[in-house]
Amino acid sequence: VKKMAKAIMADPNKADEVYKKWADKGYTLTQMSNFLKSKTAGKYDRVYNGYVIHLD
């Protein structure tokens, strides 16, 4: 998940494709939050927020 999150950060155009894969795998927002937690607070906030919007 972190590898794909980094791919989104490097190229935001990949976001919809990645979010669809995550949704197809049934990842919940709680799971995504836990996967994307980082020592650098807020590092993956943009990715998480994008997934929230995708699921909505």
Results as ranks from 00 to 15, higher is better:
Leu55Tyr: 04
Lys14Tyr: 10
Glu17Met: 10
Lys6Tyr: 05
Ala41Leu: 11
Asp11Arg: 05
Gly42Cys: 07
Val52Gln: 12
Ile53Ser: 12
Met4Gln: 14
Lys3Arg: 13
Lys20Asn: 08
Ala23Gln: 10
Ala15Met: 06
Gly26Phe: 06
Lys20Gln: 12
Tyr48Cys: 07
Glu17Gln: 09
Asn49Val: 10
Met4Ser: 07
Ala5Pro: 00
Tyr27Cys: 05
Tyr19Gly: 01
Leu29Arg: 08
Met9Lys: 05
Lys3Pro: 04
Asp11Met: 05
Ala15Arg: 07
Ile8Gly: 02
Ile8Ala: 07
Ala23Gly: 05
Asn34Ile: 13
Tyr19Glu: 01
Lys21Glu: 15
Gly26Val: 01
Ile53Tyr: 09
Ala41Asn: 11
Trp22Met: 00
Trp22Thr: 01
Asn13Gln: 11
Thr40Asn: 09
Met9Asp: 02
Asn34Ala: 13
Leu36Arg: 00
Tyr19Lys: 01
Ile8Arg: 00
Phe35Glu: 06
Ala23Tyr: 10
Leu29Glu: 06
Lys2Ser: 04
His54Lys: 01
Met4Phe: 05
Asp56Ile: 15
Lys43Ala: 07
His54Glu: 03
Tyr51His: 02
Lys2Arg: 12
Val1Asp: 02
Val52Pro: 01
Lys20Tyr: 07
Lys2Asp: 03
Asp16Gly: 11
Ala5Ser: 03
Gly50Asn: 04
Arg46Met: 14
Ala5Gly: 03
Tyr51Arg: 00
Ala15Phe: 04
Val18Trp: 04
Gly50Arg: 01
Tyr51Cys: 03
Lys21Ala: 15
Asp45Lys: 06
Arg46Ile: 15
Tyr51Val: 02
Asp16Ser: 13
Thr30Asp: 14
Ala5Asn: 03
Lys39Ile: 09
Asp45Tyr: 07
Lys20Phe: 06
Thr30Ser: 12
Trp22Gln: 00
Thr40Ile: 11
Met9His: 05
Met32Asp: 03
His54Gln: 04
Ile53Met: 13
Lys37Cys: 13
Asp24Cys: 12
Lys2Glu: 06
Lys43Gln: 11
Gly50Met: 08
Thr40Leu: 09
Met32Tyr: 00
Phe35Val: 06
Val1Cys: 08
Ser33Arg: 15
Pro12Glu: 08
Lys3Phe: 09
Asp16Phe: 14
Leu29His: 06
Ala7Pro: 01
Ala10Cys: 12
Tyr51Ser: 02
Ile8Trp: 00
Met9Gly: 02
Asp45Asn: 07
Val1Trp: 04
Asp16Ile: 11
Gly50Pro: 00
Phe35Asp: 04
Ala5Lys: 01
Lys43Met: 10
Tyr48Met: 10
Tyr19Leu: 02
Glu17Cys: 12
Arg46Lys: 15
Lys20Trp: 05
Lys3Met: 12
Val52Leu: 10
Val52Thr: 05
Asp11Gln: 07
Leu55Trp: 06
Leu29Val: 11
Lys14Glu: 06
Lys25Gln: 14
Thr40Lys: 12
Thr28Lys: 02
Tyr44Asp: 01
Thr30Gln: 13
Val52Phe: 06
Ser33Phe: 14
Leu55Ile: 08
Tyr19Val: 01
Pro12Cys: 09
Ser38Gln: 04
Phe35Arg: 03
Met9Tyr: 05
Val1His: 04
Lys6Thr: 06
Gly42Pro: 04
Pro12Asp: 06
Val18Met: 09
Val1Leu: 08
Asp24Glu: 14
Lys37Phe: 09
Thr40Glu: 12
Gly50Thr: 01
Val47Asp: 03
Asp24Ile: 08
Leu36His: 02
